[in-house]
């Protein structure tokens, strides 16, 4: 079930970060767009974690997995747990996440596991929209004003190293992410070029999320997310 946790935790943590934007977006229309994307990711997370819990067969439902695991048990990539930063950082994170999730969900929608294929088929359509949204904003920020260009380039530079972890080989998964990096680059590089942004050089490649070795940020994120649920063991909400 580790590959399901990886997918589900990516979506859950991404949703949690996007939820932090509520009532803080640059414009009201964008508040609505970010909430939509958060709702999509949260919806995918719930289906994936529910399925993971059923496969495990230990009686854990989506909430048990979301609220009662510690950071060392989370399997999400480091990219999604990074703080939101400014709007440019959030859009860089979304662009790279969506450019990874789109080919991944597309491949998974044809995999032998029918339940997973159905979840991926739904998520693929949603992620295509997330990619579109991030692309539009990357173009506008990259090719907007001098300040927005500077911020967007800085955001891309900051987040780029974390994209390598997304394509770590996992031969046991229904779709091995290692084979998706070419598609990722084929999506991302033209966007960066059109946005007049420099594609960062590959180099430092932090990783560990898939093994439960996270950044310092995740524990704080979980502390906030889990505080109420954990304060009332066994309660229903």
């Amino acid at each position: 079930m580790d590959h399901l946790l990886a997918l589900g935790d990516d979506a859950l943590v991404a949703a949690q970060r996007l939820g932090e934007w509520v009532a803080a977006a640059p414009e009201l229309e964008e508040d609505i767009a970010l909430a939509n994307i958060a709702l999509d990711q949260l919806g995918a997370a719930r289906m994936l974690l529910t399925y993971a819990g059923e496969l495990e067969g230990a009686g854990r439902d989506e909430d048990a997995l979301a609220y009662l695991r510690d950071d060392r048990e989370f399997r999400n990539c480091l990219l999604v747990e990074l703080p939101n930063g400014d709007f440019a950082v959030t859009m860089a994170k979304l662009l790279f996440l969506a450019a990874y999730q789109l080919p991944l969900y597309t491949a998974l929608s044809g995999c032998a596991d029918e339940r997973l294929a159905a979840i991926a088929g739904k998520a693929r359509k949603e992620v295509a929209y997330h990619l579109d949204h991030a692309r539009l904003w990357t173009l506008r920020l990259g090719d907007g004003t001098a300040e927005s260009h500077r911020r967007m380039q800085s955001a891309v530079d900051e987040i780029w190293p974390y994209t390598h972890e997304l394509f770590q080989p996992d031969p046991t998964a229904p779709v091995d992410p290692a084979g998706l990096r070419a598609e990722f680059l084929a999506i991302v590089e033209p966007v960066l070029a059109e946005a007049t942004l420099t594609r960062p050089a590959d180099g430092w490649a932090p990783e560990g999320g898939r093994r439960g070795l996270h950044t310092e940020h995740l524990s704080y994120l979980l502390a906030e997310m889990q505080v109420l649920h954990r304060a009332h063991p066994g309660a229903r909400w």
């Binding site: 859950l12 939820g19 949260l42 997370a45 719930r46 974690l49 997310m225 505080v227």
Partner: peptide, 15 residues
Amino acid sequence: ITRAPSLKRKAILLA
């Protein structure tokens, strides 16, 4: 939103 006590409640509140 970030502290909603279940994922279902979180989704409803976000919406």
